[in-house]
Design a protein around this nucleic acid. Structure first.
Lengths: 185, 185
DNA sequence: GCAGAATGTCTAGCAGTGCTAGCATCGGGT
DNA sequence: ACCCGATGCTAGCACTGCTAGACATTCTGC
């Protein structure tokens, strides 16, 4: 049944095309501009094909988010290898700044995927592991809490910054201070 | 012109009615359920009336947010008076937890109101002042940066918690740790 | 090679969204 | 008593997510 396998492969390819088209559209014009019609236009199919790949629009955004988790984990790993805790913080905030729509899909837009209760994507869990390892030397026997707090702080900085609610010129100072607070035990 | 003044007063009253109806609806069913038709139904007018008070739906949400800034500042002040930095953190996170839709309108939904660039609502500025004062004893000559960082951390905790992305049982631990990091200079 | 079945895609449409033009109707000023 | 401006309404537009049903097209069994 090689012919069916090839079909299946082409189908998966089209699924990936939809996801990357959605991501591009979101990054270019924001998620509110990602409509079924525009997306169908972009991939040069009609709207119903979207629904043969994904349950609904939210599922497409979730697929984009999943890509993001993978890429974030890679970026975080590189960051921590380059410059420890400070590199991790820089990598996280740079990722959020460079891919605002992607970051929104991952952490701001509420989706069906409620983690912590239920199953967490493996890539996200790997990202958390990077935090855990990086933070462990500075935790008094409770790296989980410190890792969650560090992540939360970075998330807060990322989202408030994205909304222009923090003074841009103090960006570096805030990261410095955060890292100093954690490392100075 | 007493009659006109009375009319104007009734008009303002209706404006407030719209805002509180929107807030109730959002708190009860989430912002995605706040539509012009439902809102008009709730205040027992037709949709066009909404537009004689507000430019558009976003402006209504912004009015709700403005209410929230006032209330948050009050809550933060009480918190810091009761238990210093820890009371401030508790008050902030309790506010976000008890009024999730309100908090969304204030800090999550992106609106025209980009602060930091442009004018910041007076009540929000007052809220930041509470942070500044509470944090000042623990800052090495740079309370602004520490206040922004503290606020960001709480915001991160609040939003990630709201999305069920943090372990609920560690809630108190995270606050403890955050406050300890700041106070332990 | 060919009829019939199965798979896949598209056209057309529904219900609901934010928002507005234009028409009644009501009330105050002269 | 009349006029006229202000006010709220009905109806409608262009858009949204999503789906039913018609139409090809391709594969299967003979």
């Amino acid at each position: 049944m090689s012919v069916q396998q090839r079909k299946e492969k082409a189908r998966e390819e089209r699924g990936r095309l939809i996801v990357s088209a959605a991501r591009e559209l979101a990054e270019a014009e924001g998620w509110e501009a990602v409509t079924t019609r525009k997306l169908a236009d972009k991939v040069e199919y009609s709207q119903p094909v979207l629904y043969s790949h994904f349950k609904n629009m939210d599922a497409i955004a979730s697929a984009v988010a999943l890509q993001g988790f993978d890429e974030l984990t890679v970026a975080l790993t590189k960051g921590v290898e380059r410059a420890g805790l400070r590199g991790l913080a820089d990598a996280y905030l740079e990722f959020a700044r460079e891919h605002p729509a992607l970051y929104q899909a991952m952490f701001v837009r509420q989706s069906e995927l409620t983690f912590a209760v239920g199953e967490i994507p493996a890539s996200l869990r790997a990202g958390f592991a990077v935090f855990l390892a990086a933070v462990e030397p500075h935790a008094d026997g409770d790296p989980e809490t410190l890792a969650e707090l560090f992540w939360s702080s970075l998330h807060g900085l990322a989202t408030l910054q994205a909304g222009s609610r923090l003074r841009p010129d103090l960006h570096e100072h805030r990261i410095d201070l955060l890292v100093r607070l954690i490392t100075a035990h």
